[in-house]
Structures are given as C-alpha cells and as structure tokens.
Design a protein around this nucleic acid. Sequence first.
DNA 1: AAGATAAATAGAAACTATTTCTTTTTATAT
DNA 2: ATATAAAAAGAAATAGTTTCTATTTATCTT
Lengths: 145, 145
Amino acid sequence: MGEDLSVLLKNLNLKVTPKRLAILDILDAEMRYLGPDEVWQRMKARFKSIGLPTVYRNLEELANGGVLIKIIHPDRKLYYYLCRNTDHHHHFICISCKKVEDLFFCGASEIEREVKNNLKGHVISHLMQVYGLCEDCAATKTIST
Amino acid sequence: MGEDLSVLLKNLNLKVTPKRLAILDILDAEMRYLGPDEVWQRMKARFKSIGLPTVYRNLEELANGGVLIKIIHPDRKLYYYLCRNTDHHHHFICISCKKVEDLFFCGASEIEREVKNNLKGHVISHLMQVYGLCEDCAATKTIST
DNA sequence: AAGATAAATAGAAACTATTTCTTTTTATAT
DNA sequence: ATATAAAAAGAAATAGTTTCTATTTATCTT
Ligand SMILES: [Zn+2]
Ligand SMILES: [Zn+2]
Ligand SMILES: [Zn+2]
Ligand SMILES: [Zn+2]
C-alpha cells in the first residue's frame, strides 16, 4: 500500500520523500478529515524532526494536485481528507466524529439550468457539503467536539 | 428604509445604535457580499470614530440573528451578505463582481433520503454555494479580482 | 556508484485576520 | 432625569498560516 501512495506523488511530479509518504499514509488510514496540527502531531510520532510548515506545504500541494480534498468547515480552519473517489461527488460529514462519507446526489444539472435560464449567468463550480450524524453517532446520540 | 432596518434590530433585541443602522444600511445597499474591512472602510466615511472590532462584533451578531448570511469563500475570510429572502435557499456568487443572487433549487430532500437510506445517518444541515459569472460579467468575459 | 541539480525541509520569524480586554459612552426603560 | 445594561473605542493579544534562508535530500546524469 505504501507503493500506491508513492505512485500518487509521482503522478504529480512530486518527489517521493518519507515525510510526504507519511502524510499520505496518515490520511489514507483515516476515515476522518484532519487539520494540519492533527497531522503534525502524528508526524512527530514518526519523525524526530518535522516542521509544521512542511505539513502545511505538503497538505496544500496534495490538495492542489487533487489527491486530497479540502473540507469546508464553519470554523474556517484548514482540513483535508484523502478521498479515493475521483468522480465528481460531495461529502457527508459527521459533526460528532468527523467521519467523511461520499454522497452520490449532486444537483449540478438542475443548478446549471436554473442559473442559465433564470439568472442568465454561467456556472463555474459548486460547493456542497452535508453535515449530520453518521450511523454510529446517530445511535449514540452523543455529540462530542 | 432606515425604519425597517431598525425593526430588524429590535426583533433581535439589539439596541438601535447609529453604528448598527449604518452597517445594515451599507449591506442593504449592496448586491454583493462584503468583508469586515470593506464595511469598516465605508463606516469610516460616516463616523469620525469607528473601531474595527465594532464592525466584527456587529456583523457576527447580525449573522447569528439571521439578518445577515455568511458567505463561504475559498480564501476562508469572513464575508457577509444581507439577504431579504427568509426561506431556505442557496446562493449563486459571481466570482468576478461578487454579486450574490438567490437560487431556488435545493437538493435537501434527495440528500436526506440518500443519507438515511444509504448511510443510515441523520442530516443536520447542508451548505451549498454556486460560483460562476453573473449575466453582466459573463457578457464582459473579464474577470477582475 | 559518485556527482550535479533542483526540490524539499527545518527552524525561526513574520504576518494578518480575528478576538479579547478594559474603560468609557450610549440607548432605553423607569 | 436617572439607572442600568448593552455597545463601542482603542489597545493589545491570539493563533492559524505563511514566508524566508540555510541545509538536506531525492532524483537525474554520467
Ligand atoms: Zn460520526
Ligand atoms: Zn455536485
Ligand atoms: Zn458578476
Ligand atoms: Zn438546501
């Protein structure tokens, strides 16, 4: 599995460094979105020397390359999620445990039509995220931070 | 028109101060979303003494009260928009001129169904914004910052 | 396999949007 | 008019994020 992570980097013409592989590995093992600081904490367990700017830089590069997606959060901090689904889709985010799940519903065509017909405008992109409780958390009904 | 702005404040049990009315008036006159600093600049033209924290505080209070809506922007800064439409709806945002327009399409029920049936989860809220070029900007095809 | 080269990283420092704090002022109810 | 609690000024602090420079490292070339 470390193999296919390095392929991700090579495809982006990024050098395959231990730090980059570790960042990917950390996110690959998570079903949740993580912030730079959270990733940094885990990196410090793996490397004796690891700078926070390195984490920021790599997360951003990987997001720009499409390997990670940015999670839009009401707190306006940076969060990233490694999503293997390369098709256009949206996400359901559990506000209790931070788990991310793919959604297949997307109103792109309806939006496109409405913007074209009613507003006479042109759609470039759209953002959709759904917040709620995942199956486990809905069962527990306990909301943590 | 100043009258119905003060009603908005009274409904929220907020004191009707000149600063608050001015902030609302500034946003009411705009079809675009504005950031705190942009609002502050305009406030400084109206008041000899006006603090930036006052602008921040009021914008946030008004957003919490539902009078303003927060615009989610890729730059992760704060932006507000005064929307008179109190029904649930979403927005089309022109990335060229920052104009905001209401959309009527909303996939809430489809999302709800998908989350319930496929993920066995529970939807609490959803966020949708559409980015593009408004009629005027699409015609001009010139994208400013 | 060793050297060359450009990219990546560490660590410190800077940045800046946003928030907090304390004092003074002001809107509103009595 | 007075009392009271909310609002605002102004300064200061915060914290997430970005920038900078010197050093290290991955990868390409021979
Ligand atoms: Zn959950
Ligand atoms: Zn979509
Ligand atoms: Zn426009
Ligand atoms: Zn909706």
